[in-house]
Nucleic acid binder design. Structure first.
Lengths: 135, 135
DNA sequence: GCAGCATCTTAGAACAATTCTAAACTCCTT
DNA sequence: AAGGAGTTTAGAATTGTTCTAAGATGCTGC
């Protein structure tokens, strides 16, 4: 399964990023377990409590670089809050309105029909489906 | 066609909002023509250049109140930018990635099948489809 | 009409999330 | 080991939004 190895320095290098101590630490937290959703703030707290101090600016930089490199996907669900999703495959999201919790669901069972053609001069980039639910 | 009259004081009163000079001016700009997408900033500029000075705080207040009253719908497409859509009916959005432009498209031709059931303890609130396109 | 009062507006401060800056540091090549 | 491009960092700056508290305004009952 390429791209899923636990050799984080190698994966970062493949993505065109120097495997610095900070980026490797963040990659480990992000990609070692199953899929996750993080914010810059939550990841910063996590990396601090793991005794690997990384500045908040670096967390922001890394998240943006990982996203640009295709290692992460950014999900915008609420104004002023950006989630990063380690699941970069095809899937959509449940968003639980009051608490801001986000859950993935696979898109392979989902079919969307009847979408209009993209406005002229543009090409399709991605279709996001956000299913908003309330308690 | 109820709810579509041009008697803005009456419409605001129906929504439980006092028809102040500022709210009426904003409502006129928002609802007089066809459907539109605005940000607080863009609406503030517009109302200023229409010689009806309304403070930015009031624009934010009014947009939030209009949204809560169901006169507007908030669309979250990019981090740190909130659009308000005067079209509160069923429809979805094109989002043109680099420039941040937003276009409505009707949802009556669109069918979404195979969505999983909402997580237990929650009920469906809304399904947002954002079709991201690039130039 | 108008007094009284709850509601609304306002400028500016405050706040939250994110990005920038510029100096120090580190990974990599040689 | 030395050099240099690329990184990290703390703190300042920026951006978008909300809060504050003082004054203004629309509404109700008289």
């Amino acid at each position: 399964m390429p791209g899923t190895s636990l050799d984080f320095p190698a994966r970062l290098r493949e993505a065109g990023l120097r495997p610095t101590r900070q980026r490797v630490a963040l990659a480990r937290l992000l990609f070692e377990g199953g899929h996750r959703h993080v914010t810059a703030e939550s990841l910063h707290i996590e990396v601090k409590s793991a005794q690997m101090p990384v500045s908040l600016a670096t967390v922001y930089n890394a998240l943006n670089q990982f996203r640009d490199a295709g290692l992460l996907r950014e999900v915008v669900v609420a104004p002023g809050r950006s989630y990063f999703d380690t699941n970069t495959g095809h899937h959509h999201h449940f968003f639980v309105e009051p608490d801001g919790a986000l859950h993935d669901f696979p898109s392979d069972k989902v079919t969307i029909a009847g979408l209009p053609a993209p406005p002229k001069g543009t090409r399709l980039s991605r279709v996001d489906v956000i299913v908003r639910v309330r308690r």
